[in-house]
Every structure is written in structure tokens, then in C-alpha cells.
Amino acid sequence: MEEKVIQFMNVTGASQRDARRYLEQYNRRVDHAIDAFYNQPLSGRREPAGPSTSKLNQLFEVYKDPDGDDITVDGTIKLCEDLGVDPEDVVLLAVAYELKSPSMGTWERKGWVDGWKGIGCDAIATMKTALLRLRDRLGSDAHYFQQVYNYTFEFSRPPGQRSLGIDMAQAFWQLLIPFGLQGGALSHIVSPPTRDGEDTRMMEDEEGWRDEYTQWWFDFLQKKGVKGVSKDVWQMFLEFVRSIDFKFEKYDLEAAWPSTIDDFVEYARERLAKET
């Protein structure tokens, strides 16, 4: 308990008394207690000062390219080392969204300061804790997952290009889709009734997208010779993953799905037939 109290105090700057109160209220879960400290203050506690712009600017200088105005790849690698996170960790996509990263491995000063202040951090210690919260939110919050997912296309697309290269798209899908399925952000959703009033809502125990279908999607794209992924396909694929049943039976070919997804459904149906 004492170690957790010290950790809580170091991150939040709270008194020992407040640290114990929060930890006891949240079953000694340091991450939950810290999150509550910033979002659900206990009565009688003095509100802490917000994150310091000055500290964030100083921290930005630590990682900034010495010959430029931004943090670039080398600074990003050093930042990841200090945060104790792999540069390819999915949580960094949430950080990129929050800090409005203009491109992969690049961080601008305004986005850095505004983003970390919005998250509630101005030091590496609090950033480490924030990554725990962001990871949990990304995995479990469907709306937040969609925001990060859509932003990923924007910040990873090469300048001047309308589509995302297939290798890059697959790399991000491989990070995001399994993570969202595991955490619940991509839980199977209920379909609305049809136009003629027939109730086609799925039963709660009906299965949706399976992990292996992500690889099927990759196999299909390779077979089709797809070189790039448009914004429309990128965004609609997320809706497709959340709504399709595991047998691909309830797919509406008359709906406004991209033709690439139409073709994949036929591919998946044929593959299912061969495997059953």
C-alpha cells in the first residue's frame, strides 16, 4: 500500500491523506484512483493546478529535432523509450489523435502542448499513467475507437495522396482490429429493421467478425491486387466489421457499401463454403 501511496503522490502531487482516500475508494488500483483524482474530485480536496504550459514546452525541447521546429522520428523513439512503450504500440495511435500529430513520428509544438494539457499531463510520470487510461479507452469505447481509427488514415496518408498504401493500411488494421475486438470497442452491433418492417435485429449471442477474418481480408486484397485503400473503404470497413454476422449472410448488396467490400463478402462466402 505504501508504494502505491507514494506512486499516487508522485503523479498527482496530492497529499498522503488524499492519496490514501482515493486508493481505498478505488480498491487500491492506482490507475483508477489517479483517473478519479482528475475527473471525480472528493469533497474538501483542493483542486490541483492544471498541467503547466512551461513544463510541456521544456519537455518538447528535450525531444525536438535540433535542426527543426518539430519532434521527428529520432525524438519520437527517445520519447517512447522514456515512456516505456514500443514505437509500434497501438496506444500511440490514440496519442497521435489527442496531440493531432500531422504525420507518423512527428509532433508539432501546439499539438503537443494542447494535447497533453487536455489529457492532464506535463511530465513523463503522468504521461505513463495517461497511456494506461488511453489504452483502456481505445479498447473499450466504440466512439473513441472510431475517432482514433479515422484519424489514423489522415495522419498516416502520404502528403498529396488520396489513398493509403496497402502495406501501411494492413499494418494499422493488424494493430487496431484485433485490439478493438478484444477490448469490446468492436463488439457486434445490432442491425436495424428492414424497410418493410421485418425485424432483423441480431440476437445477443449471435457471433460477428472473427479474428481470422482479418487475415481473410488481407488475403482477399492481395488476391485482388489492391495497391491502395481509399478513405471511403477505410471508414466503411470499420462499420462492416462491427455489423457483419459471422456467416456473412445478412450483408445487403443493395446498400451503399464500397465495391471492394461487396467483392470481399462473395470471397468470404465461398471460403466459408469450402471450409464447412
Rank of each mutant, 00 (worst) to 15 (best):
E3I: 05
E3L: 08
V5D: 03
S15L: 06
S15N: 01
S15G: 09
Q16D: 08
A19T: 11
R21C: 08
R29Q: 14
H32L: 15
H32P: 01
A33D: 02
D35A: 11
A36V: 04
F37R: 09
Q40N: 15
Q40C: 11
R46S: 06
E47N: 10
E47Q: 12
P48S: 06
P48I: 01
T53G: 02
S54R: 12
K55H: 12
D65V: 00
D65K: 10
D67I: 07
D67N: 14
D74H: 13
D74F: 12
G75E: 07
D82F: 04
L83Y: 09
P87R: 07
E88C: 10
E98F: 04
L99H: 05
K100M: 10
S101C: 14
M104G: 12
V113S: 02
D114T: 14
G115S: 04
G118F: 10
I119N: 03
T126D: 02
K128M: 05
A130Q: 06
L131C: 02
L132S: 10
R135M: 03
R135N: 11
D136G: 03
G139C: 04
S140F: 06
S140I: 04
S140C: 07
A142F: 01
H143V: 10
Y144I: 04
F145P: 01
Q146D: 15
Q147W: 09
Q147R: 15
Y149H: 09
N150A: 12
Y151F: 15
Y151W: 14
T152K: 12
F153L: 06
P159R: 15
Q161K: 15
L164F: 12
L164Q: 10
F172H: 15
W173Q: 03
L175E: 08
L175T: 08
L176S: 05
I177G: 03
P178D: 07
P178I: 01
G180I: 11
G180W: 02
G184M: 09
A185V: 06
L186E: 01
I189D: 03
S191K: 15
P192F: 07
P193H: 07
D196V: 08
D196R: 13
D196L: 10
G197F: 07
E198F: 15
T200N: 12
E206I: 00
W209P: 00
W209T: 00
E212F: 15
T214V: 03
T214A: 01
Q215T: 08
D219K: 03
F220R: 05
V226R: 14
K227C: 06
K231I: 03
Q235H: 11
Q235E: 11
L238M: 02
F240C: 00
L253K: 13
E254Y: 09
E254V: 06
A256H: 13
P258Q: 06
T260N: 02
F264P: 00
F264T: 01
Y267P: 00
Y267K: 04
Y267F: 13
R269L: 03
E270G: 09
E275N: 08
